[in-house]
Nucleic acid binder design. Structure first.
Lengths: 337, 337
DNA sequence: AATGGGGGTGGAACCGCTTTCATTTTGGAA
DNA sequence: TTCCAAAATGAAAGCGGTTCCACCCCCATT
């Protein structure tokens, strides 16, 4: 059908091995031969068949990315980082979207197989404990990105320190002079075992403690991840006998709900209420929302770098890299009235 | 290294061919043999090597998706549709992100090759004219999703009729009683030759014409795709001696800019100004923005379906399928004061 | 009882590449 | 000029599947 290495060899009057050497830049070819073969390759518009190459090499030259797409910018940014790092390599990027726990479990078992891929990136998806052992013993290297979990120490991972992030956000508010700081997030228990909200909560607690501020249980609310629910929860907080003067929302989406609540109650932001979010999504800039920014793109890049190292056989022991989180100050936080 | 078909054959005391037949559900195996082989397969935890399979079959069992991710929800939705349709097939989804014209041109040449993939989905990316001919003559089936271009008639494609969409949006405003309707969009000329904005503009013109409304050039503005620029342009429109009573923004992002401009000028929406967007992105619902919704997820599904048909050899001639666009009425449009 | 046909089966070729290994060629030293 | 090590080369053996084809066996037909 299409032109093969045999055609090139015949046409150039050399053996298969020589053509293969030319393709793979082996030094064991004389300049003259190389030149001749290269010419024929160009003439015939020959492209080596990657499938045959993979089979012969015993490698798949393929990296799998397992992640819940969601409809969040964070996913795209991480994926961009991953893709960009893979451009200049031989590796293909094959994608596995997870939207149910069933699919997650199916992929956790079927994707990381020697015959399928050379490496796996699992993004924003903590595995079940049942899968942990098999993942840790898996012959193909695995790197987890953004899946911090106490029991993940046997896996390579790029973590985002949400505890520190939550602490930073809270400290920013405290530094502005706020004494009554509330925390609003999505539920701590989710089907996918996301720990971000809980970690940020822990950071919040730590910041309070360090500042010597009293922890008030009534200042911590959690509910479904949507601006509508966030608004209701924020209304609840702001109608307390002694309402908070600042609210730390565990995501920008929820911060939007808080802003909406403030508007409903006629509270001016930031004069009467400070609001800080988390993620730095696109509209955050538009709305002037102060927030915590993660290095999403960079986390993808680092993940690929680590995975490549693992594939190359470096790292006998699991490596854990931490990505920094930075405060982006905009117009929704200010000292209390 | 890992267990192969040969191991299974030996263990089961049958020939390779028989094991292969069992794997591929060939009817040419007796029930007894099938049962025995299946048991051994399970026992040895055998998984056929996809690479070897591909080489032998002469298929890559791989679909390429070439698309600019951007950081837009629209991308993720289309991709979700594509991925979902591929789950129950043998096909892998490999991803090619395009962020520069150089990459686009490189991918247009290197990706659609027999030895690489069985089919290609090109999403939201009109090819250059130079590439058109080679794409049309390409031995591997190609389906364009959301890349409407007059000269694309020789390629399979799923189109979103932006002319109709633009017309609908405009007609909605006219039906409400607006006589002075403006159109605000991103620039018609882009490095990637996107035609959406221009098509929507044409729809806008058509709607005006049908309603017998006078076209005013000063009511049409275009600039970079961002809410900030959109706000400036909207301010310009609203400060005209005879300002429009309704603005059709070519994207929700830009509609946000319009809303901001209205706020700056103290105009109440929708009482004093109607605004309609396009895309129905996530915040649109949050802000109650009236907008045009595309069937993004479904466009991905249809693209895969069409591609599979093309791979199967149906469709001697290029097929063009049109996806509907629907009006989502929310709280930013109303009859003029 | 001989014949024909069809279902079941296994051997072997093949997919297109890489790589080992044996062989030939080359270049420089003796 | 001879000789040897090093460089260059090609044949062939995989990689792990699929499938063609020849073969065997069994049963129904004549």
């Amino acid at each position: 059908m299409s032109v093969t290495i045999r055609d090139v060899a015949k046409q150039a009057g050399v053996g298969l091995a020589t053509v293969s050497r030319v393709i793979n830049n082996s030094p064991l070819v004389s300049a003259a031969t190389r030149e001749k073969v290269s010419r024929i390759i160009a003439e015939l518009d020959y492209h080596p068949n990657p499938t045959a190459r993979r089979l012969s090499l015993g490698k798949t030259l393929t990296i799998a990315v397992v992640t819940p797409f969601f409809t969040r910018p964070a996913f795209v940014e991480r994926l961009r980082g991953i893709h960009t790092s893979l451009i200049d390599t031989d590796y293909d990027l094959v994608l596995y979207n997870v939207e149910t726990t069933e699919r997650r479990d199916a992929y956790m078992r079927s994707v990381p197989r020697r015959e399928r891929v050379d490496g796996v990136l699992i993004v924003s998806l903590p595995p079940r404990n049942e899968d942990l052992i098999s993942l840790a013993n898996c012959p193909v290297p695995i790197v987890m990105i953004d899946a911090n979990h106490p029991s993940l120490t046997m896996l390579h991972r790029i973590v985002i320190n949400d505890v520190t992030g939550g602490q930073c956000a809270t400290e920013h508010l405290i530094a502005l002079g706020h004494q009554r700081v509330a925390y609003l997030s999505d539920t701590f228990e989710t089907p996918f075992n996301f720990t971000a909200s809980y970690d940020r909560y822990r950071g919040y607690r730590q910041a309070l403690e360090r500042a010597g501020l009293h922890y008030r249980p009534e200042y911590v609310v959690a509910g479904e991840h949507s601006h509508a629910v966030a608004r209701q929860m924020a209304l609840g907080l702001l109608r307390l006998p002694e309402p908070p003067t600042a609210i730390f929302a565990a995501s920008d989406t929820q911060a939007l709900g808080v802003l909406e609540a403030a508007q409903v109650l006629g509270l001016r932001v930031p004069e009467q209420l400070s609001v800080i979010g988390y993620d730095d999504i696109e509209v955050a800039e538009y709305l002037g929302l102060t927030t915590m920014r993660q290095q999403l793109f960079e986390s993808g890049r680092r993940g690929v770098a680590l995975l490549m190292e693992a594939i190359a056989g470096r790292h006998a022991d699991p490596v854990c890299e931490e990505m920094p989180v930075t405060l982006v100050e905009r117009r929704t936080t200010a000292p209390p009235a």
